[in-house]
């Protein structure tokens, strides 16, 4: 049996954007309306296939970044990719995660990153302009409008991240 490639990926973003929910949807196929804020880090595993090869994803779901519990750099070390998560009903969370992206690049060098704008199912409250997302895409972002509740584009976002991470890890 050949050694499977194991890759650490981290979810980062403001509190309550749905990081834990995205992981639960992706790994367990479940969703809960209840908000239980994450303390420290919560780790899950998922096997995926990239180009026909099995890859072990070690998913680090990290506590939301705010003044109450700022992001800890030590959790992020050795990450092969970042899933940056924002809440499409709270534009400020998108601004914050984009700013975080710059901080991450500064601290850890170029690392693959994918953007998930979550809660796509909340159509009435959605508050991020399509034009803004198009601009982000045009500037090179891989981004998805996800819904952890409905499962929309959740696998796509993780798969894209896995592929980008594998490509970088393999050089």
């Amino acid at each position: 049996m050949s050694e499977t490639l194991r890759l650490k990926v981290c979810l980062v973003g403001a509190p309550a954007v749905g990081k834990t929910s995205l992981v639960r949807r992706y790994v367990e196929g479940a969703f809960s309306e209840e908000y239980l804020t994450t303390i420290g880090v919560r780790i899950s595993r998922k096997r995926v296939e990239v180009n026909g090869e099995p890859v072990g994803l070690v998913v680090w779901d990290i506590n939301g970044d705010d003044a109450f519990a700022p992001l800890q750099a030590t959790y992020l070390r050795g990450a092969a990719g970042f899933l940056l998560v924002a809440d499409g009903t709270r534009p400020v969370t998108l601004d914050r995660v984009l700013a975080l992206r710059d901080e991450l690049a500064e601290a850890f060098g170029p690392t693959p990153a994918v953007l998930a704008i979550n809660k796509e199912d909340l159509v009435d409250e959605w508050d991020v302009e399509d034009a803004h997302l198009e601009d982000l895409r045009a500037s090179g972002w891989q981004l998805w409008r996800t819904s952890a509740r409905e499962g929309t584009a959740v696998d796509d976002a993780f798969q894209a991240l896995a592929e980008a991470a594998v490509a970088t890890a393999r050089g």
């Binding site: 994450t38 303390i39 420290g40 880090v41 919560r42 780790i43 899950s44 595993r45 800890q72």
Partner: peptide, 8 residues
């Protein structure tokens, strides 16, 4: 100190 972590 590691801080709390949750994992299987």
């Amino acid at each position: 100190m590691s801080g709390p972590f949750t994992e299987p």
